[in-house]
Simulated scan of single mutants.
Amino acid sequence: MEHKWTIRLFAGLNERLGASSIELLLPNRTLSVSELKALLSEQYASHRDLIHLCFVACNQAYAQDDAVIEHSDELALLPPVSGGEESAAEQDSSAASADAPLYWLTDQPISVEEVTRRVIIPNHGASIAFVGTTREWTQGQRTVKLEYEAYAPMAIRTMEQIGEEIAARWNGAGCAIAHRTGIVDIADISVVIAVSAPHRDACYEASRYAIERLKQIVPIWKKEIWDDGSEWKGHQTGPWNPLAGTEQA
């Protein structure tokens, strides 16, 4: 009996392979992550090097190479991340309320004030907002716009994880993150990270930690679009390993 395996693809992978997912019929009900990647590398030999760099997500969490996965799991092959359907995981940043989310994706402009407002509480005396915008020139090449793609439910989950890590490291510090998806023009805001804490030193440290950790683990990809072409950009500062310990963030 054969079992159907479905593996979702994102960013540069779906462009190169010409599909948003791969479907395999295999006799195996279970495989290790490394076995699955080996099968994919064999089937798509011309993309072997890229597949080798990818991580597998199982049920919206990164999986170690020796982890055992099942054909019925929600699986995705994730290329190196950038380094963001209307749902509970993706909401317009103007929809503030008492139960407004702290972590969200949106294809609409982000309000810095709105993100910051969500972390200000009476017993915190300091708050800071990191604002990421689209840069026009990078190493002599002119970017005309960016395009962001996200694995939405997992992106929200990993942003929440960053908030939990910050609260644990900096004695209850608060965090909120909003990230754009879709097209972002030059000088427009792509991400806002707001942090609050009782004192300013914790704010500065936690803000830096949040943006570095976002680049490390959150499945959001960035395509740089130029006058004469485009390219999906992955992690640019060394080996991408979202399973590494937080001390590397």
Results as ranks from 00 to 15, higher is better:
residue 5 W to E: 02
residue 7 I to S: 04
residue 9 L to V: 12
residue 9 L to T: 12
residue 9 L to E: 12
residue 17 L to I: 12
residue 18 G to F: 11
residue 18 G to Y: 11
residue 19 A to W: 06
residue 19 A to M: 08
residue 20 S to C: 10
residue 24 L to E: 07
residue 31 L to V: 07
residue 33 V to Q: 02
residue 35 E to Q: 13
residue 37 K to T: 02
residue 39 L to S: 03
residue 39 L to W: 05
residue 40 L to N: 06
residue 41 S to G: 15
residue 42 E to N: 10
residue 44 Y to K: 04
residue 45 A to E: 13
residue 45 A to M: 07
residue 50 L to A: 13
residue 51 I to D: 02
residue 53 L to K: 14
residue 53 L to F: 10
residue 58 C to A: 14
residue 61 A to D: 07
residue 63 A to D: 03
residue 65 D to R: 01
residue 66 D to R: 00
residue 69 I to V: 09
residue 71 H to T: 01
residue 73 D to F: 09
residue 73 D to P: 05
residue 74 E to T: 14
residue 75 L to A: 03
residue 76 A to F: 12
residue 77 L to W: 11
residue 78 L to Y: 02
residue 81 V to I: 15
residue 85 E to H: 05
residue 85 E to T: 07
residue 87 S to F: 06
residue 90 E to L: 13
residue 91 Q to M: 13
residue 92 D to S: 15
residue 93 S to A: 13
residue 93 S to L: 14
residue 94 S to I: 08
residue 99 D to I: 02
residue 99 D to E: 03
residue 101 P to W: 12
residue 102 L to S: 07
residue 103 Y to L: 04
residue 105 L to E: 14
residue 109 P to G: 12
residue 109 P to E: 14
residue 111 S to E: 06
residue 112 V to A: 13
residue 113 E to T: 10
residue 113 E to L: 11
residue 114 E to C: 00
residue 117 R to E: 07
residue 117 R to H: 03
residue 118 R to Q: 06
residue 121 I to G: 00
residue 121 I to W: 00
residue 122 P to I: 00
residue 123 N to A: 08
residue 125 G to K: 06
residue 129 A to R: 05
residue 130 F to N: 08
residue 131 V to K: 05
residue 133 T to F: 07
residue 135 R to A: 01
residue 137 W to P: 00
residue 139 Q to K: 14
residue 140 G to D: 04
residue 140 G to C: 04
residue 142 R to H: 09
residue 143 T to F: 11
residue 144 V to Y: 09
residue 145 K to W: 11
residue 145 K to R: 15
residue 148 Y to D: 04
residue 148 Y to F: 15
residue 149 E to D: 12
residue 149 E to S: 10
residue 151 Y to L: 14
residue 152 A to W: 09
residue 154 M to N: 09
residue 154 M to D: 11
residue 156 I to C: 15
residue 163 G to K: 02
residue 165 E to Y: 00
residue 165 E to A: 10
residue 165 E to D: 09
residue 166 I to A: 01
residue 167 A to T: 02
residue 169 R to Y: 00
residue 172 G to W: 06
residue 177 I to C: 04
residue 178 A to H: 08
residue 179 H to W: 09
residue 179 H to S: 03
residue 181 T to A: 04
residue 182 G to C: 06
residue 183 I to E: 11
residue 185 D to R: 15
residue 186 I to W: 13
residue 188 D to Y: 05
residue 190 S to Y: 14
residue 190 S to P: 10
residue 190 S to N: 11
residue 191 V to S: 09
residue 191 V to H: 10
residue 192 V to C: 06
residue 196 S to H: 07
residue 197 A to Q: 09
residue 198 P to M: 01
residue 199 H to L: 11
residue 199 H to W: 08
residue 201 D to W: 03
residue 206 A to V: 02
residue 207 S to G: 14
residue 207 S to V: 04
residue 208 R to V: 05
residue 208 R to A: 12
residue 215 K to E: 08
residue 217 I to E: 00
residue 217 I to A: 05
residue 219 P to H: 13
residue 225 I to L: 08
residue 225 I to T: 01
residue 227 D to Y: 10
residue 229 G to R: 10
residue 231 E to Q: 15
residue 232 W to R: 02
residue 232 W to E: 01
residue 236 Q to F: 11
residue 237 T to L: 12
residue 237 T to M: 08
residue 238 G to Y: 02
residue 239 P to R: 04
residue 239 P to C: 02
residue 242 P to Y: 14
residue 242 P to M: 10
residue 247 E to F: 00
residue 248 Q to S: 15
residue 248 Q to F: 13
